[in-house]
């Protein structure tokens, strides 16, 4: 554990229990987020990335059983998973805040934007100075005038900016961005990413950026975790993971988007056959083996733990040569 980590997650497991069945959605994820660092979490739909993000603030429904540790606030910080309701509410938003996907549904249609941005400060008994709200709006590229607007009067991109302003309302140390650009068109997506990156830098914020789009992480992330079937299958510095992916799944993910400047890649779209496995019926051995192009003898029986390549990089694949235990 490094001294300056804001968030330290140890062996996080989330299992949904419904109708007597148990569905493991997250299966032992460990990682850290350092102060000021942006960690990207990438994976297909259904790989457990949103479940993992929501588990960090205990926002999952009662049917989800969460184990492991989520230590917030560096060394000597408290475990979010065992906190009492009072301290938990204090950590929510003032410690870790969330930029949700689909701002459309997350804003109350009958309340003005200014009132909704102030809501977090009201809930945390902070000063209710209206200039704080307008300052936040201006910092995300909106104007003070927008405080009097209602959600239906704004565009999708503006609403997403409001979500970011809202996330900043209580000066958190960490922002969890759960697919913040998913519902936006490409231009607005780029602007929103740029905004998030700028604000992260300016305020020295740590960020956990959850997305299914690996290319998005090129803009924002310092480090990347690749999630598959509820486990980290590869992790490392963003540039290394993007330019030189080790795990066949990461290779397939990055091959799914064309490389600008390389015309050949546009005519040879490589996509991965099949869907991510049903968490209720996980394949034996390596969860990825039924879809893996580099499958070898034994992949369907022996599960592979993360193998460390260097101090920063690790991947869970038989083809990766272990250079010391993780």
């Amino acid at each position: 554990m490094t001294g300056n980590s804001v968030l330290s997650v140890g062996d996080l497991r989330v299992t949904y229990r419904t109708h007597g069945r148990s569905v493991p959605a997250v299966r032992g994820v460990s990682f850290e987020v350092a102060a000021g660092e942006t960690v990207g979490v990438v994976g297909e739909s259904g790989c457990g990335k949103s479940t993992m993000a929501m588990a960090l603030l205990r926002l999952l429904p009662g049917t989800a059983e969460v184990t492991g540790t989520v230590v917030f606030g560096g060394e000597g910080g408290d475990d979010v998973l065992t906190m009492r309701p009072g301290p938990l509410r204090a950590v929510r938003w003032a410690g870790m805040s969330v930029v949700f996907q689909g701002a459309q549904h997350v804003l109350n249609p009958v309340q003005s934007i200014g009132r909704q941005i102030a809501e977090a400060r009201v809930a945390h008994q902070l000063s209710n100075d209206p200039t704080v709200g307008t300052g936040l709006l201006e910092s995300v590229g909106l104007t003070a005038r927008h405080a009097h607007s209602y959600p239906h009067e704004m565009s999708g991109g503006q609403k997403q900016r409001v979500m970011i302003a809202m996330a900043l309302a209580c000066d958190p140390q960490l922002i969890i961005a759960d697919e913040p650009t998913t519902a936006l068109d490409v231009m607005v997506q780029a602007q929103t990413l740029e905004l998030l990156r700028r604000i992260g830098r300016e305020r020295g914020l740590a960020m956990l950026f959850v997305t299914h789009d690996l290319t998005v992480l090129r803009t924002v992330a310092d480090r990347i975790l690749v999630l598959y079937a509820g486990r980290i299958v590869e992790q490392g510095p963003a540039r290394d993971v993007l330019d030189d992916p080790m795990h066949p799944y990461t290779v397939a993910l990055s091959a799914a988007s064309p490389i600008i400047g390389d015309p050949r890649s546009r005519f040879a779209p490589s996509s991965l056959a099949g869907d991510p496995p049903d968490p209720a019926r996980l394949p034996s051995g390596c969860s990825f083996h039924p879809r893996c192009p580099r499958r070898v003898e034994g992949c369907d029986t022996v599960g592979i733990e993360l193998r460390r390549l260097s101090t920063a990089r690790a991947a869970a694949c038989v083809h990766v040569v272990d250079e010391g235990s993780p």
């Binding site: 950590v91 929510r92 938003w93 003032a94 949700f100 809501e119 977090a120 809930a123 209580c170």
Partner: peptide, 8 residues
């Protein structure tokens, strides 16, 4: 959900 997330 947002209100609960923000500690309300």
């Amino acid at each position: 959900e947002r209100a609960i997330t923000l500690g309300a």
